[in-house]
Each structure stands twice: as structure tokens, then as C-alpha cells.
Nucleic acid binder design. Structure first.
Lengths: 246, 246
DNA sequence: CGACAATTTGATCTGTCTCAACTATGGTGG
DNA sequence: CCACCATAGTTGAGACAGATCAAATTGTCG
């Protein structure tokens, strides 16, 4: 464990993709104490049923929120990248209803609940920002229900790719047409409700159609417009604010 | 339009299934102005893309939040009963990312945003309650992703039935083993990602197994324990508070 | 009673799963 | 530096859950 400094700017930037903050808000967030931790891949950061005393911020790597269903089947309900705070809910709900798993080696920061509560009591705009974050998350889950419930495999996979790209782009984790999403095809399957075998075929279809190619963990989108069309993707459910470019 | 009185107690009771309120909180909620409206079945209460100036409270009937995907397919992402406030998010997010459809004739109450905002500014405990509501909703959506993504048709349908029963029970809309859920089999299909034909067969299986029978819109659960088992249902994701029985 | 919506049943078709084998790829220790 | 092993991806064949299409039956309500 060690103190982190620019970990703060990562989650502040993330928050600002969805909520307007002023300089005082940012100051208050920067003052939150944060201890950093390293994690190996495939480690659980927290498990279903647990209580938490801290919120975690992802500093690097990729995590997934997972739910287990009868028979050991796994459903991934969201992916999280640098800047995300995947367990903000633990501030208000005492037991986790899912687990958070590191899909890669990663670095996370821990911020004590009471310091976040104090900050948002002092600055209601921060409380609103966290509330909004929860609402946007809800909107994304709704889209996932529709994705898994009513879209064909190809659209489904393409949709998840579009979403990851857009969300990563919003916090500067992409280049113009490619991004690093170091997850396995099985993970993608657990996120889309498909088998890993079928994910493989679907990725091949996307590749042959000249939409997305992947070398290792780096994925390149060759035709954003056509990918969006086949994915039936409309980013408005992400509720991203128009960014004032620096 | 006419003024409503006991509409308030319905949504107060609903809020209290998830958050602790004190008498002052309840008072503040009771003072919120509310206009009631009647709606025919199959009417949209709001549509995707719209902005809202009021939040609605369901006083009677059943509504569903719907998302449309390419090709006119529909996905229902949640059901709402008396006491629910399905568009609380409009307080903080300006555009609706889905629509709200009346599945039956219904009565709703409208409460202006600014009055809710004023109340929660005055009483932070109310702001927290709304925030919690959003988080619990998120938890339910996660469960739906897992339900639609990783469960078989029989478990899926049973799970939705279990959830509706539990949520309605929490606000006193059930008898000991039966409840009125006036939705069509097609609606159930749109909620579970199955075809209406297959829902029909699945309901028959549930009936033949002696788990659930339905006459008209009234459904009776004959073996709660076995239904819960076949549904893989664990209510903890609803984050219901232990109720202090009156 | 007629009209329309909802449910039931049957037959056929298709997407996706499962199982199984095979091929990169990369890391590790000898 | 290479032989080995683990992990991830690729491909094929057969099985099955659930979709689609079509038709018949049963409400339900004006």
C-alpha cells in the first residue's frame, strides 16, 4: 500500500464525463485519502454478500461485476476501466449483491466511506454527482438487459464493443480507432450470454466483415459507422455530457 | 385531473421498503403536490428521448419500462405497481433513455420536479432515500441481465414471477399465496427475452408441476419453496429492509 | 351476438450450445 | 536457447432450446 496522487485525477475525469463539477468540487475530491493496492488477474476484489468500508477506484486494468446463477454459470453485468468506481453503491447499500473480479492484473485505490460521505455532505453537488452516476449505471444495465434479451449474437457482441470503446474514449483510453481491452473471449461470452465458442465465431464474422480486428488484446475498429449499425448502437443511454475540449 | 390524498401513502410505503424515514420525512413527502391522471392500457406515459418536469407515482395498474431494439423488437426492463415511482431518474438525467408504457388501465400521480428537489434539499435523508432507490433499481437490473443472459426459460419465467410477488408483497398488494398481475403472456415474453408462444408452454409446465396456476390475471403460487428453487431466486438483490410490522 | 384480443396447439426451422480436437501464443525452468 | 506447459483461440459435427409460422380455441367486452 502506498499513497497515490494522480489516481484522483482519473476518477475525477470519469465523474466529469457524466456530471458538471466546479473547481471546489474537484479540490474536495482530490483531498480524499486513497491507498493503492495491486491485484493479480482473476482475483475477487469483493464478493457477493460482503460489506464494505471503502470505495475502490480503478487505476489500471479491467474489472468485471459478476453474478453467479445456479449451476455455476456466470453473468458479467459490467466492465470497468481506469477511473471507474464500481462499488459506489456500498456507500448506501450495506451488502454487495454481486462480486467484482479482476480480469487482468490491476491497480486500485481505496477511499474510506466516511471521507466520501463527509465530502458529499459538505458539497451537495458531489452527492448529486454520485447519485447521477448511479442513475447512468442503471441506464447502462437497462441497455444490457435489452442487448442480452432481444439482440442476435452478432449485434450483441458488436454492441458491447461499441460501448466499451465509447466509454474508454470518454476518459481518453483510446486512440482514434483502436483500444486495448484485455479480456478473454470467455469473458465476452459471460457478458453477452453466449458461449465462448460462439463468441469466437462471432468475432470471426466481425473480422471477415472488416469491422473489427484484434491482435492480442488490442482491438481496431475499421468502420465505426457500419459497426454501430450492425450493433444497433446509440450512445445516448450512456448519458455522456458534451465535453468542453481542453 | 384532481387532487389525491392517499396516493402519497402508497409511495411513502414503497420508499420505506428500502429506506428508513422518520416522521418529518413522511410529513415532507405528504406535502408534495400531486395531480392524478387516468390512462388507458397500452398508452405511453413517456417516451424515449423526452424531457420531464414531473415525476410520476403509480396509484393503480401496472406499467413497464420498455426499450426498443432494431427491427421493432421490444424489451421490457422492469414492471411497476402501485407505489412505484418509475421515473425518479428524470430529476437528474434530462432525457429519458426508455419509455414507460401502461400495460393496463391505470391511475398515476404527477409531482413537479422542483417540489421534490426542494424537499430533498431541506431533508438530506430524503435525498439519500431517492439515491438508494436508484441503487436498488440498479441491483434489480443486474439481476435481470443475469436472468435473461444465463437462465433457461423455465427458471427465467419463474424468477420474474418470484420477483413480482416479493415486491408486491412488500407493499401489501398480495394475499398469502396469490397476487394479481394483469399482464399478457406477450408482455412476459418481452420481459424475459422469450417468444410469447414459448412463454405459453413454459407457463403450462409451471402449472403441470403444481407451482403456479393462473386464472385470468390472478396468479396463485402453490409451492413457494419449490418455485423459488426452480427460479434460482434469492431476494437479497431487492435490498428490502426488514419490516417493522405495524 | 359479433368482434377482437389472448391463449393454446402443432409442425418446422434456426441459432446457439456442447463436446472434442487442433492450433497459435507466451511464459517458465532446465 | 529450447522443450515444455498452460492459456487462449479456432474449427467441425451433432443435439436441443426456443423461434417462427399457421391455425384453432377460448375468453372478454361493447
Amino acid at each position: 500500500m502506498q499513497a497515490s496522487f494522480d489516481g484522483h485525477s482519473k476518477f475525477i475525469r470519469q465523474l466529469e464525463t457524466v456530471s458538471r463539477l466546479d473547481e471546489d468540487d474537484r479540490q474536495a475530491l482530490r483531498r480524499l485519502p486513497m491507498l493503492t493496492r495491486r491485484l493479480d488477474a482473476n482475483r475477487d476484489i469483493f464478493r457477493e454478500g460482503q460489506k464494505a468500508t471503502d470505495c475502490c477506484v480503478i487505476l489500471s486494468g479491467v474489472a468485471a461485476r459478476c453474478k453467479m446463477v445456479a449451476g455455476g454459470r456466470r453473468q458479467i453485468v459490467s466492465f470497468h476501466f481506469a477511473g471507474d468506481m464500481p462499488d459506489l453503491q456500498s456507500l448506501l447499500l450495506d451488502r454487495m449483491d454481486h462480486s467484482l473480479t479482476a480480469l487482468t492484473a490491476m491497480q486500485i485505490g481505496m477511499i474510506p466511506h466516511d471521507t466520501i460521505r463527509a465530502a458529499s455532505r459538505l458539497r451537495p453537488n458531489l452527492a448529486d454527482a454520485f447519485h447521477r452516476q448511479a442513475l447512468v449505471e442503471g441506464s447502462i444495465f437497462r441497455e444490457w438487459v435489452a442487448n442480452v434479451g432481444r439482440r442476435m449474437a452478432l449485434e450483441r457482441v458488436a454492441h458491447v464493443i461499441c460501448e466499451c470503446f465509447e466509454r474508454m474514449a470518454a476518459v481518453g483510453l483510446t486512440t482514434s480507432d483502436s483500444f486495448t481491452l484485455p479480456i478473454t473471449q470467455s469473458d465476452l461470452g459471460d457478458a453477452t450470454g453466449l458461449s465462448n465458442v460462439h463468441i469466437n465465431r462471432t468475432m470471426q464474422t466481425l473480422r471477415k466483415a472488416g469491422l473489427v480486428t484484434s491482435q492480442g488484446r488490442v482491438h481496431t475498429i475499421h468502420d465505426w459507422k457500419r459497426l454501430r449499425d450492425t450493433a444497433d448502437f446509440d450512445s445516448s443511454y450512456l448519458h455522456l455530457l458534451p465535453q468542453v475540449t481542453a
